[in-house]
Computed example of a mutant assay.
Amino acid sequence: MLEIAKEAAKLAGDFLQERFLEQLVPDAELHNDVKLPEDKESERRIIEVLHRHFPTHTIFSEEVGLVEREAEYLWIVDPLDGTNNYFIGFPYFSISIALQVQNELVLGVVYNPVAGQMFWAEKGKGAYLNGKRISVNQRTDRTRAVGTYIRGRHSITKEEELAFTKPFVMETKRLLRNVAPALDWCLLANGWLDYVVMQRSSIMDVAAGIVIAREAGATITDWQGVPYRHKAFRVEELASLVATNGQLHDTIRGYIQE
């Protein structure tokens, strides 16, 4: 299943990279989002690969929604993580594919085609980047910590975002807003980032990244400090999480203002 997920991500990623330098024409431009035909084509290629190999599996993908079949196996697909980045020519985007089996996340693949980065992980088997095992860093100094903020596109106002992020901006070295959530979690997994803070965002956006970060040794909790435990996927369910290298977890969580 891992190899098929990687195949699907690579196929879609190669297509997206071919189109990346073109002048893209959106289907729609919204206040917080943009709809691109490339999103749909990437999705079509991923679903074709998954259903060719696993015709009885259910798939949830961002554009087509739920393609319901056998409920035990659910593929959670974001065919273009970072659509807005892709649209404006910013090379920070990925394809994200996760597998939920009996309501548990067991596999994640995140592929950044521009950088040639293929992240993957299976439950209990570690996390990898292009075949090399990866892990979170051991930084303890908050003043050198770099993190990223992920927010729900339709659940957080700009005023709320400004108020919430101020402590992280002031107390740590840098807070990024990369707008490609799955890839953010992979940067944490490889020790490039020290923390991720997520505010009322869909698990669909980060399911694969969560598997990869968890297998790389990240500490993942809700805002109250309760260890993250995946629930049966529901698209309407939003999550507020904090993930760190473990060394900085209590410090970072202490900056959260609910």
Rank of each mutant, 00 (worst) to 15 (best):
P55T: 06
P55G: 08
P55W: 12
P55V: 05
T56M: 10
H57K: 09
T58E: 04
S61W: 07
E63T: 10
E63C: 07
V64N: 13
V64T: 15
G65R: 11
L66K: 13
V67S: 07
E68P: 05
R69A: 09
R69P: 05
E70L: 10
A71N: 11
L74Q: 12
L74A: 03
L74M: 14
L74T: 12
W75S: 10
I76W: 02
V77G: 01
P79W: 11
P79V: 14
P79K: 14
D81E: 00
G82T: 12
N84K: 15
I88N: 01
I88K: 12
G89I: 10
F90V: 14
F90W: 15
F90A: 11
P91E: 06
Y92S: 10
F93C: 07
S94K: 06
I95Q: 07
I95P: 01
S96N: 15
S96P: 09
I97Y: 00
I97T: 00
A98C: 00
L99D: 04
Q100W: 03
V101G: 02
Q102G: 01
L105W: 13
V106A: 02
L107F: 12
V109F: 06
V109I: 12
V109W: 02
V110G: 04
V110E: 08
V110Y: 01
Y111Q: 01
Y111V: 08
N112V: 09
P113T: 08
P113C: 07
V114N: 01
V114T: 02
A115M: 10
A115I: 00
M118T: 01
M118Q: 04
F119A: 05
W120Y: 15
W120R: 09
A121W: 01
E122R: 10
E122C: 04
K123E: 15
G124Q: 08
G124W: 05
K125I: 05
G126Q: 12
G126H: 09
Y128K: 00
Y128T: 01
L129M: 10
L129N: 08
L129G: 09
K132E: 14
K132W: 04
R133Y: 03
S135F: 06
S135Q: 15
V136C: 01
V136H: 05
Q138V: 11
Q138E: 13
R139S: 04
T140Y: 02
R142D: 04
T143M: 02
R144Q: 14
A145R: 00
A145P: 09
A145E: 03
G147P: 05
T148D: 15
T148R: 11
T148F: 12
I150H: 07
I150D: 03
R151M: 07
R151L: 09
G152S: 08
R153V: 01
H154G: 08
S155E: 11
